[in-house]
Amino acid sequence: MSTALESTIRIQREDFIVTDEIEAIKKASRNIGGIVTFLGTGRELSKGENITQLNFEHYPKMAEKKLEEIRQQAIRDYGIIEMIIIHRIGEIDIGENIVLIVAAGEHRKEAFKACEWAIAELKRTTPIWKRETTSKGEVWVQDTP
């Protein structure tokens, strides 16, 4: 039996609690047997420079649309049961949460694959931009590995 989650795709300023999201996705189905999470956090060092702050902005509507497409394709192509994707915007300090992907499947194998694919796809297709502040000033990041 499955239950529709209230918000599987979110772009928000406020922080999220990883364990709350894991508990939420468990409610999607009693057949979930493997949950994989990817949590991206604010890193201090970038290209040899110390970052003092990060700032993310997005293109409203298009960014949410792309995240929903990623979620649906992950469910369809990898056979997982549910996926939650959350990305924060605005000012983010070093060590703070930035992005969370939770992939839930019957088994671990498809959940691992779907989670890895989803973060790569998010970086490739979703209109979200990062600005780093260092001692040298502010720069919009143009290339992320």
Partner: peptide
């Protein structure tokens, strides 16, 4: 992008459309 979908260079734009110019994305972490 035109109306939230990425388009190819030869795309036609119509009155009322929303065009966005998108630098390389850098979401994630």
């Amino acid at each position: 992008s035109v109306n939230h979908e990425v388009v190819v260079p030869g795309a036609v734009i119509r009155d009322g459309d929303e065009v966005a110019l998108l630098p390389p994305f850098s979401g994630g972490c």
